[in-house]
Amino acid sequence: MGSEAAPPSLPEWTSEPCMMGIDEAGRGPVLGPMVYGCLYCSISYKDTLSSLKFADSKTLKEEKREELFENLKSNVSIGWAVDIIDPRELSAKMLKKTKINLNEISHESASGLVARVLDMGVLLTEVYVDTVGDPEKYRIKLSERYPSVKFVVAKKADSLYPVVSGASIVAKVTRDQAVLNWVLDETAENMHKKFGSGYPGDPATKAWLDDHKHSVFGFPTLVRFSWGTCTPYFKKLAEVLWESDEVDEEGSSSGNRRQLKLTSVGITGYKRKSEEIQSSGKGRCKFFETRKLEQLTRF
């Protein structure tokens, strides 16, 4: 999780009651990081903030967004911070043995920003949060965690509250720059960076996915493997079975579950009939059973 924050020396206005907006960028795309951004200022600055013409970042042109971001960075009456959630982290969490869904990841990120700004010593009293999920549940969750703060959670908050519009600019510009400057982990030849917007419907993104699919590895780690967009691709690539994805045996009413056999020591490609049944060393003495060592007469 990368992060960046305003300089540590706190301006005086932070000891006045402050408001903060939180918004996200890059929730939908199949590739790249998801970014949570926040922008805060003293409540007495509210009217001036409204005059700065922050609008929902999606309605602004790229250059305009970048210009506004530069302006707010140099504005001493405004503070901001971002939380960059790496696509590897998104994939890993959503594909954990106990899966974590995108809403939970989002909530933790937003909550982390509140904690970070409070820890810096900013007197936050009002926080406005944009959400795609159920606003009330989310509001209760945040209010319980930070009782001193009044939370307003709303859909489309980025177009309703200037402080959230500002946060959306922080998030969107940071996400765009992160994708633009992305250094692919993979070193295979013929890789390129024409990612497009990253949205599954974007022809440039589709073309990039087609150009970078790999029969064994799937995709470069820039891609969010947990996205539904990837599923049709995986069907055409080498199948990969995980121990954590238990396979139901036909007529599993008996509760009989087949566990994938992946732990036998023999690292051979030989296809045995029992390929998908876990090596257990069953029937052998305890020493072998606990180590799942079975005897092979053929490999």
Binding site: V216, A238, V240, E276
Partner: peptide, 15 residues
Amino acid sequence: PCCIKYNGPCSVSHY
């Protein structure tokens, strides 16, 4: 910790 249904050469170190 998985079973990859593929046998053959693969550019492992690049990925």
